[in-house]
């Protein structure tokens, strides 16, 4: 699985990798991530040169193209400070995928080193900083989406620890939670029928649980599911975990 050696944390300074999706579509998620980290007493740096983790090309099989982006990312996130990502998928790309595609490359050690100090947000808060309870209040029924690239990592348990600790928040279960939503990066556009059918199944299960909000540690899944639901004319309310944590500090549901 994805268990790995990690560089032990020393300070409380991190580099934020906002992810390309937040850079392009979900700025509020990135902003919430900053506020949540700062609330936890963490100093957040944002390397301006950042672009993307390289995953689209990696999954697409174009490893030379992907390595080009990963090399840029390694240069951009230089230094010793941990990298925190509000995405289980981008985090897994850095500590697992990139390592795989650099197996035979001379600069593999630099890629592995970046992987060892890369953390998904919830994992960083709970297992890195030792946060067990989150203050504030968020009166809502929340369904939590287990994004696939968090499989085998501690991120899902960490996110649920945080969510369940919030006053007023109820986590509701739904069917086949371990099943993929059908996003899968380029899979969503290369296999549109399968992707859509998997998404519909997920939406059926989530809607049956009647949550107020569907929360994830990955916006990619939410972009797919939210997009499908909106097209059907039956939109669902989706939020990133960071938004819920931030809004809890403000005492409840804020903008989506």
């Amino acid at each position: 699985m994805l268990n790995r050696e990690r560089t032990p944390l020393t300070g409380r300074r991190v580099q934020l990798m906002a992810t390309c999706l937040c850079d392009a579509f979900y700025d509020d998620v990135a902003a919430a991530t900053v506020e949540v980290l700062e609330h936890a007493g963490v100093e957040v740096a944002f390397p301006e040169g950042q672009t993307c983790c390289g995953q689209p090309a990696f999954n697409g099989g174009d490893w030379p193209a992907s390595r080009r982006v990963v090399r840029h990312t390694v240069r951009t996130f230089a230094g010793e400070d941990p990298v925190v990502v509000p995405s289980g998928s981008c985090a897994a790309m850095l500590f697992h995928g990139a390592v795989l595609e650099f197996e035979k490359e001379p600069d593999a050690p630099a890629v592995e080193a970046l992987g060892r100090r890369t953390w998904e947000l919830a994992d960083y808060l709970v297992n890195g900083l030792g946060v067990r309870t989150w203050p504030g209040r968020y009166p809502a029924r929340v369904a939590f989406h287990r994004s696939c690239h968090s499989r085998g990592t501690d991120s899902v348990a960490a996110a649920l620890t945080l969510l369940r600790s919030i006053a007023g928040l109820e986590v509701v279960e739904f069917g086949e939670a371990e099943q993929c939503c059908g996003f899968g990066g380029t899979f969503a556009v290369t296999f549109p029928h399968l992707s859509g059918a998997m998404g519909q199944l997920k939406l059926d299960h989530v809607r049956a649980a009647q949550p107020d909000v569907y929360v994830s540690g990955d916006m990619s899944c939410m972009m797919h599911l939210g997009g499908l639901a909106a097209r059907e004319g039956r939109p669902i309310r989706t939020l990133h975990l960071a938004q819920v944590l931030r809004d809890a500090l403000r005492g409840g549901e804020a903008k989506s």
Binding site: N59, C148, G152, C180, F191
Partner: peptide, 10 residues
Amino acid sequence: KASSLCGACH
């Protein structure tokens, strides 16, 4: 390519 790489198989 016919996979979302969800990892359930692993």
